[in-house]
């Protein structure tokens, strides 16, 4: 079953092209990476899927159902969650409140939320000790963990995450990636956007490579890792980007 399928999707910001003719799919239970240099259109693809921006043409379907006119918050209720670039946790709210809001769309009753909170805290024990602290006081790595945990509060069928390694030291990156693998092992489908190719290919089964708004390369991680065209897609850019 295809959890997510994009067919010939094009997004424009006014006259400026975001992405053009992007087709890709993610099977249920799979981790798929979306790779590419800065500005290649990776985040644009995620925003189009989560409904933050609307494609000029093309179709996006979620477990076979077309998304078309569904507004962004309804897609979350439907089981799709998007951890955006920069994490965007609510810094003026406590960690507990952040987590609770993660369940806003899907777990409407207090008991459902409490039960889900227990399940999520079992996955992310780090957060339990800081429950009453303001989220803005967390370190970058902890904020990323919170962002993933908050997304998992909705018990999503598909998790989309944008640059989880950005700005983190290697040790924290390992922690965050372990968590993503754990989330996937529990049956959540993951679409991962990442500039760090080696890292992403390690946990993804397949990957798509975007260059200037179009998919230029795709395939299984193992074969992509050895494909010289992959580094070509990054050349001239990847060496300048840190993160």
């Amino acid at each position: 079953m295809k959890a997510l399928e994009l067919n010939d999707v094009s997004v424009f910001y006014g006259a400026v092209r975001g992405v053009e003719g992007v087709s890709l799919y993610v099977d249920e239970g799979e981790i798929v990476a979306l790779l590419g240099a800065n500005g290649a259109g990776k985040s644009t693809v995620l925003k189009a899927v989560s409904g933050l921006i609307h494609p000029r043409h093309g179709t996006i379907s979620f477990f076979g159902e077309p998304f078309a006119k569904l507004s962004a918050h309804r897609r979350v209720i439907g089981g799709l969650v998007h951890v955006p670039e920069g994490r965007r946790i609510f810094t003026t709210l406590t960690i507990g409140e952040n987590l609770e809001l993660g369940a806003y769309g899907t777990q409407r009753s207090r008991t459902e939320r409490a039960q889900r909170l227990g399940e999520v805290l079992a996955l992310f024990p780090l957060l339990e000790q800081h429950f009453e602290r303001l989220a803005g006081t967390l370190s970058g790595g902890e904020q990323q963990v919170l962002a993933i945990a908050r997304a998992m509060m909705s018990n999503p069928r598909v998790l989309m995450i944008d640059e989880p390694s950005l700005g983190l030291d290697p040790q924290k990156v390992d922690i965050v990636y372990d968590m993503l693998e754990e989330v996937a092992a529990l049956g959540t489908t993951v679409l991962l956007v990442e500039q760090n190719v080696a890292l992403a290919l390690e946990i993804a089964s397949r990957a798509y490579v975007l260059q200037q708004g179009s998919v230029v390369l795709s395939g299984r991680s193992a074969s992509l890792a050895q494909d010289s065209r992959l580094s070509d897609a990054y050349l001239g850019k990847a060496t300048h980007d840190h993160g």
Binding site: L52, R74, L93, E100, Y104, S154
Partner: peptide, 24 residues
């Protein structure tokens, strides 16, 4: 209340609030 927390969330970051499934 959860509604109040949603209000504060919308106040801080409307996009992030939408991504929580909040009808902003």
């Amino acid at each position: 209340t959860l509604l109040g927390k949603a209000m504060r969330a919308v106040s801080e970051d409307r996009i992030a609030a939408v991504l929580m499934g909040i009808n902003v």
